[in-house]
Design a protein around this nucleic acid. Structure first.
Lengths: 151, 151
DNA sequence: GCACATCTACTCGGATAGAGAATGTCCGAGTCTCTGGGG
DNA sequence: CCCCAGAGACTCGGACATTCTCTATCCGAGTAGATGTGC
């Protein structure tokens, strides 16, 4: 249940990008300096968000990153899964069927109870993250930090 | 959001131990063979559950592990936190206050929205795990695997 | 036959290597903009 | 004054080290029970 560091960075960057005027972009250098983060490493997470279709990247002067979708259509779950990769399903190795206590396959038609419980918990977690959009996070910023961001 | 391997092992072992006659114990060797797991490594997780107060260990012949509490009083959350360690709080490093976009401390009295969202999701996850007890998992076993376990 | 000291075998516990992922960093490919010259 | 070619600087993208956690393993400390002996 360890959560990678970059998730926080990605989330904050998404919130910041949501405040940029349409048509403009923020370079990864600007974003990194904005939060005093290591630029080269932040780039890796931004790229992951590009691959996931959350951000759009343009090169050259005045290039950078911008949101690829509306802030209302980007959830925290999108950000987390973009950076962490698709959440690996709880790997129930079906140890029920192994070893000296191995159950017969016909006793395993119902899913392993441990697996079910972990899966349900993970789904609750995902559902909670799915309910928070980037737009909602922008709305919750303090008034002093809600204005447009310029490159 | 990676979940350590040993959680599944610990959970299955707890379910098995709940089926042992009171007063008896299962050695880690027996438990390991039961699921074809590496004994030495399983020992580490069992020890963690002992330290967490879920299991009780006795040495010598006929020794081993037994539940330290009633199966109804042990939840999946207990097992997970015993093995994974106390779930590290989402480390919001308050990057809001750093870098060129650093907010003034007076604008940060309300908790960071990203942090709040992650915290709420984690709590939903914990709440889901809290609702499943070892006793409930035993009850959901197939009938053929619900009888008492002998050392 | 019974009690006791010893001895064995079995148990857990902590200290010790190896693999994989996350973290952190660097340099190269591509592109937009600006500048200078020519018509 | 307008257009065009070139250079320059800025951007992202992928390949390369480093650190930390998880995985896996071994050997030693301690204890309950079995055993053999003496009374």
């Amino acid at each position: 249940m360890k959560l990678s560091q970059g998730v926080e960075w990605g989330a904050h960057c998404a919130v910041t990008l949501a405040r940029v005027e349409p048509g403009l972009s923020l370079s990864r250098r600007t974003l990194a300096e904005r939060y005093a983060l290591p630029e080269a490493y932040l780039a890796k997470h931004l790229k992951a968000m590009v691959n996931a279709g959350l951000l759009h990247a343009t090169t050259g002067p005045n290039g950078g990153f911008r949101l690829a979708k509306r802030p209302e259509d980007i959830t925290m779950l999108d950000v987390v899964e973009a950076i962490e990769g698709p959440v690996p399903r709880f790997v129930c190795q079906e140890i029920r069927q192994r070893g000296t206590a191995g159950l017969a396959p016909e006793d395993c038609v119902a899913r392993c109870g441990v697996d079910s419980a972990m899966e349900a918990a993970k789904e609750a977690w995902r559902e909670s993250l799915r309910g928070v959009t980037v737009a909602a996070l922008v709305a919750r910023l303090p008034p002093a930090a809600r204005g447009p961001v310029t490159p």
